[in-house]
Computed example of a mutant assay.
Amino acid sequence: MKATPARRRGPRDARGLRVLVTGASGTFGRAICARLTGLGAHVVGLDLTPRPDDPVEVLACDITDDGAATAVATAIDRLGGLDLLVNNAGVGGPAPAELPPGAEVRRQLDINLLGAWRVTAASVPALVASRGRIVMVSSRMAAMQLPLAAAYGASKRALVAYADALRLELGTHVGVTCVYPSAVRSPIHDATAAAGLSLEGMSSYEPLEGVVDTVLRAALGRRVRRDLPTTRRGAVEFFLARHLPSVTDRIIARTLAARARSGAFEGAELAAGVVGRHTETR
């Protein structure tokens, strides 16, 4: 009797994988590129400001410009095709929901959502040809919004909606996974902190390595996963935000109220409305 072949286990072999990573010179991007290269993948990055010590070749590219398609085409040509796109580029910043959307809001939407859309659209033919994968680095805030940062949460939630549409359109040929980091210490928080709107007490920081591990799990897993939080706590938060949103709303609202009353936003003009409503005499 002929033996049944053993079922393959473990991740796919990354050797020879042709990969494009956006935001490749940032905190997440450099770590993702270095890990994939170490596993034998061929990686090219895109970034607005490449650094001399980047671990891979990084092409200068402004993903808010429709001309970004040219840089994507160059990267794919150098790779000889494309097996994996990691949409990692992203920015944050202060943006209270009660205030009119200005330049900061438009900047975050253009980079976090439309930038990923531009790069993906330019990559679709090559990914379909290789039966490749797309990994979207989203955020816990795509499911569980935090206050005073409406643009970031809105852009990441919209990125997930875009990924859902891609999955429906390309799913016969291309796998699409969203990864949901919580908070990692990186320069993305600098603008919010500078505006006096730090949410330090509302998030627990997680290690960068866990985010990179999850991106690789999405990229190299035998089975394409739809959604992947990066920690056990993140998985619980993701579940609650999806299925019991009133619970997470109450927790966040109470934490915000405590911070506002404690003086955490003292002198922060953008938080004046929040502070006033929580400290007014009733």
Rank of each mutant, 00 (worst) to 15 (best):
D54V: 12
P101D: 13
A6D: 02
A219H: 11
G10E: 06
D62R: 15
P50I: 04
L220P: 12
A241G: 09
A41Y: 04
A219F: 09
T279I: 06
A163Y: 00
V137R: 01
P11W: 09
N112S: 13
D47R: 08
F28V: 13
L79C: 11
V105Y: 06
E200M: 05
L82I: 11
S138I: 15
R242A: 07
L199R: 06
S204W: 08
I134C: 07
A150S: 12
I111Q: 08
R131K: 07
V56M: 08
A24N: 12
F239K: 04
A183M: 14
L216M: 13
T27W: 04
S155D: 03
A195S: 06
L168Q: 14
A121T: 15
D213N: 02
C178K: 00
A193S: 11
R51L: 10
V119D: 01
E237Y: 11
G29C: 10
D77N: 12
L59K: 07
A150M: 05
S204Y: 12
V72C: 12
T248L: 10
F28W: 10
S139D: 01
L84P: 04
P5S: 06
Y152N: 10
S182N: 03
R8N: 01
F239I: 09
Y180G: 09
R225Q: 01
A163K: 01
T214H: 06
A194L: 08
F28Y: 14
G115Q: 04
R242I: 04
V58A: 12
E280M: 11
V128E: 05
G175L: 09
A158H: 03
V86F: 14
L168C: 14
G81T: 05
A163H: 00
P11C: 14
L113F: 14
G201P: 14
A161I: 12
L127N: 08
G273A: 10
G102M: 02
V176A: 01
A126L: 10
L170F: 02
H243A: 03
E266I: 00
S204H: 15
R78Q: 13
E57C: 15
E57P: 15
G234H: 04
E269W: 05
V56Y: 05
G23Q: 04
D213V: 02
R261M: 11
L36S: 07
A24C: 15
D227A: 15
Y162W: 11
L20Y: 09
D47W: 03
A60Y: 03
R8E: 02
A260L: 11
V128L: 07
L208G: 02
A75L: 01
Y162Q: 04
P181D: 00
R9F: 03
L270Q: 03
T4Y: 06
H173R: 10
C33I: 07
T230N: 04
H173K: 06
I32H: 04
R107G: 14
Y205C: 02
G175R: 08
T74F: 02
R35Q: 11
A149I: 15
D53S: 13
R222F: 08
V274A: 06
A241D: 02
G29F: 06
